[in-house]
Design a protein around this nucleic acid. Structure first.
Length: 468
RNA sequence: CGGGACGUAGCGCAGCUUGGUAGCGCACCCGCUUUGGGAGCGGGGGGUCGCAGGUUCAAAUCCUGUCGUCCCGACCA
């Protein structure tokens, strides 16, 4: 078979670009760092949005929409926040052909505008918690960009909540991390993620603590897939988000914010893809089953259409390809590039035996299946392959995670994967030193892998890796 | 933003050293034969050579600048 993609082990970044291009996921926009997401890529994002949105709403959070443009003065109200985002801001200085009196910034994130409105909407402890989310685009100026992984404009979801107490805000931050983010990533994206606490160096600008989900890509590098921040009372004080408590006194709220972006599409590609292209986990897949005619023949088109209809009736997201003007090989290769979990091939030879061929993307296996049992076989395959992808990714991560005793060993091990080192052995100095060699502390965990409440806990483990 | 490489048709590239009317493969269009793993043959369309200056009778080719892309760093979802 002709080589369609640069092999992963030959040049991983090139392989990634090849997949993005050949699977028709996205391409560069006309302005530096921007991206055009094509229908095949956007369909993946839409499925992510759908699954994530359900989980977000299950926490009682409601969607709303806030403006793209933010007064520059808002950004400046929280000192660390401005400082952290200043290098990434896009600023609008003109409108209607005239210079603006106060420049406005294009949102890099919306803590500030939303904080302003939270302050209006929260009056009493009875208004709490206030749980908001918005799906939108944000812009951050970036020096080095890569499709999906880092672009100047990207799509995301940002949740913003206000709570009466520290405990409630803290608990909610972790609830989002586990019940929404990690749950979605592991059960839908089939990507095992480490959940942990970010070090001060990696913390969100203006946050008390940042928690994150980190996944391992197939080149051993880490990708931060989502973050959940407890903002303490920093923004509440900057934006005067106060409530009257049952004690008759005014109190500042405790706020949180949390986000996941189109970067997850990049994670999906690099977490599951192989030398033939994308491999999309069935629960996520916009197209789960791809029914294709192999070649023209008596009753072939009809049989394929019937199988397609049967699958749809059974709730399978099926697509029919009955084209006869494109050779079989090209269509098969294309289906593999796009990572459709299963393919049903129907040709005259199969029909003569009353069968179709079930091809599974995960392992490439081909199994003849009686026409009557195609739907059942597909359903079972989808179920099994969702698990197979997760298991494979988990195994890869375990095989490439090393427990080490010194910083030097950690940096060495991070060349191929994750290194686990006692935080007491690493420390802020070790973190800075590793950073010089392109290795960062991805997160801090307790020895048993659970998420610490703060970096002051004893016996924490630092996970070090190279990262995207 | 520093270091390196590269911008020639939608994609991948040759041509540049030694200036002289722009080429190849794939993709695209038409026809016929094909369709069980990127089909074959024949015919055809498409590029002010990233952009702007300069040198020259003449610039894809030489010079300067600029923009963009990729890789490595610094900054980051």
């Amino acid at each position: 078979m002709a080589k369609v993609l640069t092999p992963r082990n030959e040049d991983f970044p090139r392989w990634y670009q090849d997949v993005v291009a050949k699977a028709e996921l996205a391409e560069n926009g006309p302005v530096k760092g921007q991206q055009v997401i094509r229908p095949t890529g956007f369909a993946l994002w839409e499925r992510m949005v759908s699954e994530m949105d359900d989980r977000i709403k299950d926490t009682g959070t409601e969607n709303a929409s806030f403006p793209l443009l933010i007064p520059q003065s808002y950004m400046q109200r929280e000192a660390e926040h401005v400082e952290g985002f200043a290098p990434e801001l896009w600023t609008v200085t003109h409108a209607g052909g005239k210079q603006l009196e106060e420049p406005v910034v294009v949102r890099p994130t919306s803590e500030t505008v939303i904080g302003e409105y939270m302050a209006k909407w929260v009056q009493s402890y009875r208004d709490l918690p206030l749980l908001l989310n918005q799906w939108c685009n944000v812009m951050r100026y970036e020096l080095r960009t890569r499709l999906f992984l880092r672009s100047s404009e990207f799509l995301w979801q940002e949740g913003h909540t206000a709570h009466a107490t520290y405990e409630d805000a803290h608990a909610f931050t972790l609830r989002i991390l586990h019940e929404v983010y990690a749950d979605f990533m592991e059960n839908v994206l089939a990507l095992p993620v480490l959940t942990g606490l970010k070090t001060a160096a990696e913390r969100f600008a203006g946050a008390l603590n940042t928690f994150a989900c980190e996944a391992m890509m197939r080149d051993g590098k880490a990708l931060q897939m989502g973050t959940s921040h407890e903002l303490g009372q920093n923004f509440a004080k900057a934006f005067d988000i106060q409530y009257l408590g049952s004690d008759g006194k005014q109190h500042h709220c405790w706020t949180t914010s949390w986000g996941t972006s189109t970067r997850m599409v990049g994670g999906l590609i690099m977490g599951h893809g192989d030398d033939s292209g994308l491999r999309v986990p069935p629960r996520l897949a916009p197209v789960q089953a791809y029914v294709m005619t192999v070649k023209a023949g008596d009753g072939v088109g009809e049989a394929a259409a019937a199988l397609h209809a049967g699958l749809r009736d059974a709730g399978v997201r099926s697509r029919l390809d009955d084209r006869t003007d494109v050779p079989f090989g090209r269509r098969a290769v294309d289906a593999e590039l796009k990572g459709y979990p299963v393919r049903i091939e129907v040709g005259p030879r199969d029909l003569a035996e009353g069968k179709a061929v079930l091809v599974r993307r995960v392992d490439g296996s081909k199994t003849p299946v009686g026409l009557d049992s195609v739907t059942e076989a597909v359903t079972q395959a989808l179920e099994a392959d969702q698990q197979a992808l997760y298991d494979e990714a988990l195994r890869f991560r375990s095989d490439n995670t090393t427990d080490v005793g010194t910083l030097a060993e950690a940096v060495e091990a991070a060349g191929t994967g994750f290194a686990r080192l006692a935080w007491s052995e690493c420390g802020l100095e070790g973190e800075a030193k590793a950073a010089e060699q392109g290795v960062t502390v991805r997160c801090l965990q307790r020895a048993d892998g659970t998420v610490p409440d703060s970096d002051q806990e004893p016996d924490l483990v630092a996970v070090l890796a190279r990262a995207y």
